[in-house]
Design a binder for these strands. Sequence first.
DNA 1: CACTGGAAAATGCCGC
DNA 2: GCGGCATTTTCCAGTG
Lengths: 81, 81, 81, 81
Amino acid sequence: MTEVGHNSNEQLRSIVERIENLEASKAEIASDIRDVYKEADGNGFDPKALRMIVRMRKQDQTELEQFEGVIDTYKAALGMD
Amino acid sequence: MTEVGHNSNEQLRSIVERIENLEASKAEIASDIRDVYKEADGNGFDPKALRMIVRMRKQDQTELEQFEGVIDTYKAALGMD
Amino acid sequence: MTEVGHNSNEQLRSIVERIENLEASKAEIASDIRDVYKEADGNGFDPKALRMIVRMRKQDQTELEQFEGVIDTYKAALGMD
Amino acid sequence: MTEVGHNSNEQLRSIVERIENLEASKAEIASDIRDVYKEADGNGFDPKALRMIVRMRKQDQTELEQFEGVIDTYKAALGMD
DNA sequence: CACTGGAAAATGCCGC
DNA sequence: GCGGCATTTTCCAGTG
């Protein structure tokens, strides 16, 4: 807490800065996504329907991944592992 | 803040009590659920697989409900509402 | 796997049903809790602050129970039980 | 609806792809953020406390922005814009 | 008994 | 301004 160079205060500052920078990038991308929806809306695509499509596609992906987990679980439950 | 009957202190107390009672009930039920899993385990059912079944059935339910939402959305998007 | 009465399929079905019923009850109570917060909000109580109070009280309760547990331990250690 | 090039199906596909790519980037950054917290944890920083600090700083920034908004409003009201 | 993953809660955000 | 949705965060049980 005095005049040192690499103290924990600096570490802390560095950590917080990195996080804040990353969060800024994330917010920017979120904004970009909103822009795409808005532009699509301007081209006659219903944003609500679009969001639903995107959500369902993501869910399909998730289910596929879960399916492999299910297989593993059942294998284990049946002593096949 | 003195000798009144229906002051906000009483209201606050009542609110907090109601919440805490409800949370106690909820915790009890959660405990019951755990008991069922435990009993099932004792009868040779793999708890992990059971949880997976329950989770997937819940998800199916959710999807079914979402599906109706999808229908409505598309209807609206196509001007059929 | 065909004409039996109390087979494991039935057991499984029973287990899953019991769990799902319990979870439904739990969800209902959770909904009630939300309603209380909402009503409180309508009466001018800040929901966020309320939640914090409830959390703090639960924490205190936990600590109280831990304390009593320590007391019991000491009692037992001193042959006072 | 058959042999066209730039039909709405293609548009739709393009939109969905753009969104999904952006969401993938967002998820990646979110993962990076988690990594930073994890690394910080490894260096002895309490992640929970860190999150609180970040949140408070964000809040302050918001207030700052609100303040600047007020300034702008005053400027406009005084014909200084 | 730490830890990891998953459930649940809470907060914040966006569109209406 | 609010209601609902998505995200984030916290909590807790199960696991090794």
